[in-house]
Every structure is written in C-alpha cells, then in structure tokens.
C-alpha cells in the first residue's frame, strides 16, 4: 500500500471554505474559484478535485473514480466513501482520464431530479474571460469559460443533458487549485 498523505490541514474550516467555493461556483456558473487547504493531494488529483471530494463525499455517497490506486486509498481513508465499479451507481464521479458519458450517469427522476450524479472532471486548464459563452441562472448577461481537456463531443452531450431538465447531471471542472461548475441549467454556446 502506498504512503497516505494527509487530507485537509483543518478538516472543519477546510471543508467550509471549499464548500463556499463550490457553492459560489455552482451559483455563478463558469466563474473560477480557488481552493486551498490540502497540501499534498494524491496523484493524479489536483487540490480542488481532492478538496471537493473530501467536502462532499462520505459513507452515504457511492463514488466512482478512474484516478487509480493511490487516490482510491486516499478517498477510502479520508472520506470513508464506498467506491463503486459502475458509473451509473455513483452519486459522485471523479474523472481524471476520459470522463464517462453524461447520459450513462444517474439522472434523477422527474419527481426527484436531485437524485442525480455530480461529475467532477480534472481538466488540463481552465480560463475565464475567453472561450465558451455561458448563459442561464446565476449569470447576469454571459460568462466566458475556456476548458482544455474535455472530450470533443462534450457540448453535444451537454446540450442533451440540458434538454432533460429538471433531470440531469451537474459538472464540476477542476484544474489544480481552480474549479468552475456547470449546473444542468447552464446553456453553453461555442464562441
């Protein structure tokens, strides 16, 4: 077994400030938030992805990840979350390689659309002010977001995800210490 690195330096306040960053990201889609509090996230996770998992996942939330043995051990130890093999069964998914297709994840039902998956994707880079045009709830006129490292057909998948509203998957994009969120209500246009 690999050497385990620590989780949040301060579990209570670390999770609180990370949650506020995610809440702010979810309520203002496309705006970048910086997360701190974990000194050595397990490879290949960045600080934001690791902190998001510790903030939201626990024994009640099945997690799927492709991040490999070290990250799995780290999540099992610090979050205590069950790891599942099938993406469809997971409440949270943490993708570092090719992300699972949105349509294969838990969508929630018409009556309980909140029982849907949240997908966290570690991407290469995130930048605001350039790239896609985002509109929808949380956005005054439009936000811009540029993402490198998503599958080529992501926008097509996202459009299908939006059509299913109120059902659908919510996405958190992370790159190192940065994160941005795409709730299912966000409309994305290519610039």
């Amino acid at each position: 077994m690999s050497e385990l690195t620590p989780g949040f330096a301060d579990p209570v306040l670390g999770a609180q400030s990370c949650f506020r960053a995610i809440l702010e990201a979810m309520s203002r889609p496309g705006r970048l938030q910086r997360v701190a509090g974990i000194d050595q996230p397990p490879a290949p996770l960045g600080v934001a992805a690791a902190a998001t998992m510790l903030t939201l996942a626990d024994a009640d939330t099945p997690v799927w990840t492709d991040a490999g043995r070290a990250a799995e051990d780290w999540l099992r130890f610090h979050a205590g979350c069950p790891l599942v093999a099938s993406p469809a069964e997971a409440a949270f998914l943490l993708a570092t390689g090719r992300m699972p297709a949105l349509a294969t994840l838990a969508q929630g039902s018409e009556e309980e659309p909140h029982r849907s998956a949240t997908l966290i994707v570690e991407v290469r880079t995130l930048a605001e002010t350039v790239g896609w045009k985002l509109t929808g709830p949380g956005i005054e006129t439009e936000h811009r977001l540029q993402v490198a490292g998503l599958p080529a057909d992501f926008l097509r998948q996202w459009a299908a995800n939006r059509r299913g509203f109120p059902r659908g998957v919510d996405v958190v994009l992370t790159a190192g210490p940065w994160l941005a969120a795409l709730p299912r209500t966000t409309r994305i246009e290519e610039a």
């Binding site: 999770a15 949650f19 903030t55 939201l56 626990d58 109120p166 919510d170 709730p183 209500t185």
Partner: peptide
C-alpha cells in the same frame, strides 16, 4: 460534519434545480 456535508449536498442540488424542493 456529517450533517453539514448532507446539507451541503442538498444545497448544491437545490442551486442546480432552481425552485425545486430537496
């Protein structure tokens, strides 16, 4: 902390589905 995490997860889904009761 367990309770906070549960409420935080509910809050994020609530923001993602405006007006829906979680």
């Amino acid at each position: 902390e367990n309770t906070k995490r549960m409420i935080r997860r509910a809050l994020l889904k609530a923001v993602a589905i405006p007006g829906h009761q979680v």
